[in-house]
């Protein structure tokens, strides 16, 4: 399931709600707003997205994960709008019969999401607001799954 939403989410409740006939393993990833970047403190960030395409790309990658691994269930929640340091941004949960499929598909989903789902972060810093630049390390992380973009 894919959800793009303004509001917060309850990780425990979302994990407990995963459903399948033979779930033996749940894996999760939670992304939070950092309060520091190196030596510099960072304030709130505002996430923008592309209604329509963002949901479409998230659904595509979720379908790809289900093709590659035997998953019982999966969930991706991504928030938008202004978020303070410490707030939750993104949740990925995967459910499978065994741990390997759950852990690997969870890593795959967050790596791919970071380079292919249309979201943009505007960070508030001391000298004003700055759009976050894409990182080559994120491209490399997605590349290792050999995903076509």
């Amino acid at each position: 399931m894919i959800r793009v939403q303004r509001g917060n989410f309850d990780v425990g409740a979302e994990m407990a709600a995963m459903s399948g006939r033979n779930i033996g393993a749940l894996s999760s990833f939670v992304g939070l707003v950092r309060g520091e970047d190196g030596d510099e403190s960072v304030g709130a960030m505002t996430l923008e997205y592309y209604p329509g395409m963002t949901e479409k790309k998230l659904a595509e990658i979720e379908a790809e994960a289900h093709k590659r691994w035997a998953l019982e269930d999966s969930l991706v929640i991504h928030r938008y709008g202004r978020l303070e340091p410490g707030e939750q941004i993104v949740l990925v949960v995967t459910a499978s019969s065994h741990r390997q499929a759950a852990i690997e598909s969870c890593a795959f989903l967050i790596d791919w999401l970071k380079t292919s789902a249309p979201f943009w972060k505007l960070e508030e810093r001391k000298n004003g607001a700055d759009w976050v630049k894409a990182r080559e390390s994120d491209d490399a992380a997605a590349e290792k799954w050999s995903v076509k973009k």
Binding site: Y49, H78, I89, K114, P118, W120, A134
Partner: peptide, 10 residues
């Protein structure tokens, strides 16, 4: 047609 910077979500 949408025009945008490289994405930075997650």
């Amino acid at each position: 047609v949408a025009i945008f910077p490289p994405v930075t979500g997650g």
